[in-house]
Amino acid sequence: MAITRDEVAHLARLSRMSLSDDELDALAPQLEAILSHVARVAEVAAADIPPTSHAVPLTNVFRTDAVQPSLPVDEVLAGAPAAEDGRFRVPRILDPQE
């Protein structure tokens, strides 16, 4: 179960974490050790076994579609990194080169 440094870098990109080179170097052997441990699940013969995503069998839990008060907007925005005009202010989401 070899996991290369490039694969770790790819996982970091998918996970939206800009890891440093030192972190990538440290993580590669750790992830390899963890993955070789958890890969033991393959030893279990389970081809015909249904998967369990949830321990309690609940389906389609509905509530009545009634109007509820929202969270207090001022308090919500007070916890945001940046806010403007009653909204979250975010960095640009479109690339100006495109």
């Binding site: 990109r13 974490m17 993955l35 690339d95």
Partner: peptide, 27 residues
């Protein structure tokens, strides 16, 4: 851009075990 800020923030904000688990889960 937003994705870059997101990635920088998550690198600075999460500790080593959380990063390990996010990456194992992503894998």
């Amino acid at each position: 851009g937003a994705e870059q800020v997101m990635s920088r923030t998550r690198d600075a904000g999460f500790g080593p075990e959380v990063k390990r688990r996010i990456m194992i889960g992503t894998y």
